[in-house]
């Protein structure tokens, strides 16, 4: 390596005008990195192939495999179940969309009620806190049973007995408590200096919330909210306990007639096919938020 370095005292050598050509050193370094990447690719492929083969053999060679395949992986039943499961899934998707919107609004309102200051708002704060505490602790299944079977037993006039609506209401009640906690954490994570700066400008509590705190808080809680959405999507399947014909119940009907469990697996795969893209989307959103906050670097 030649001593190409300029010593002290030399006024700057303005080489800025020549077009840049990568040096031999850079080219060698890049070639080396490419070689290393190729080697890494080969190692990854080989180890994946070996692991895959080992898993395949372990499953196929296990003693119960033929019976399992017949009971859970029957192609005829799968073909029979898929259209009906997909029909049912439409119910799940509608439920998720409508409930999701209501949950966001109710959750945000609950979180905001708990931020209200001043003695006059004490009952409001207490009620919101009690609501959240109650529904955070209440098991989803009990909430559903009370709504779907308990409410019709009251024979209230003007109140629906439709298990779909009542089940949806149970989802909204429970999930809005979860979501309000997420929003509240987001609001609290905004630095108090932000609120101080906003109030110093003369903004009211509500204006400071609306224009300064909430925009920052909401952006921060998008990833955990999406996690809640994934979880809600699965829990829409629980309304089937009230006899709503959704994807789960459609599978159950076929299984009850045939004693073959393939329809359950079909329903499971359909749900997974929905959640996987949503989870990847959440990862992507999280990475994007992180990336904006992070300065680049090699570590």
């Amino acid at each position: 390596m030649s001593a190409t370095t300029a010593g002290g005292g030399m006024p700057g050598a303005g080489a800025a005008d020549e077009p840049y050509r990568p040096s031999a050193r850079r080219l060698a370094r890049e070639a080396h990195r490419r070689r290393r990447a190729r080697r890494a690719g080969l190692v990854a492929a080989a180890s994946t192939a070996i692991t895959g083969t080992a898993l395949y053999l372990a499953v196929v060679e296990s003693p119960g495999w033929p019976r399992f395949r017949e009971t859970f992986l029957n192609a005829d039943y799968a073909r029979q179940a898929l259209p009906r499961v997909l029909d049912g899934l439409w119910t799940n998707l509608q439920l998720m969309t409508v409930c999701g919107a209501l949950i966001l609004v109710l959750g945000l309102v609950l979180a905001l009620l708990r931020t209200l200051r001043g003695p006059a708002f004490l009952p409001v704060r207490l009620l919101a806190t009690a609501y959240v505490d109650f529904f955070l602790g209440l098991p989803m299944i009990i909430c559903l049973l009370i709504m779907i079977t308990g409410v019709p037993a009251l024979r209230l006039t003007g109140v629906t007995t439709d298990p779909l609506l009542l089940g949806g209401a149970a989802l909204v009640l429970t999930y809005s408590a979860y979501v309000s906690e997420v929003f509240r954490a987001g609001i609290q994570s905004v630095h108090p200096g932000q609120r101080a700066a906003a109030r110093s400008l003369g903004l009211t509590h509500a204006q400071a919330m609306r224009y300064v705190v909430l925009p920052q808080a909401v952006r921060r809680v998008v990833p955990p909210l999406l996690n809640n959405l994934v979880s809600l999507q699965k829990d829409t399947g629980l309304v089937s306990i009230g006899g709503v014909i959704d994807a789960v119940y459609a599978a159950k009907i076929i299984t009850a007639q045939t004693f073959n469990y393939t329809p359950y697996l079909v329903a499971a795969l359909v749900f997974i096919a929905l959640t996987v893209p949503l989870t990847r989307f959440t990862d992507w959103v999280t990475a994007r938020t992180e990336g904006r906050r992070h300065q680049g670097g090699a570590v």
Binding site: A6, G8, G9, M10, P11, G12, G14, A15, A16
Partner: peptide, 23 residues
């Protein structure tokens, strides 16, 4: 060393660069 737009435009002892800059 005085850095300017990603190059060392001028370098030397403090007397040279800070006392009698050339650029």
């Amino acid at each position: 060393c005085f850095l300017d737009a990603g190059t060392v435009l001028e370098r030397g002892t403090p007397e040279q660069v800070l006392g009698d800059p050339q650029h």
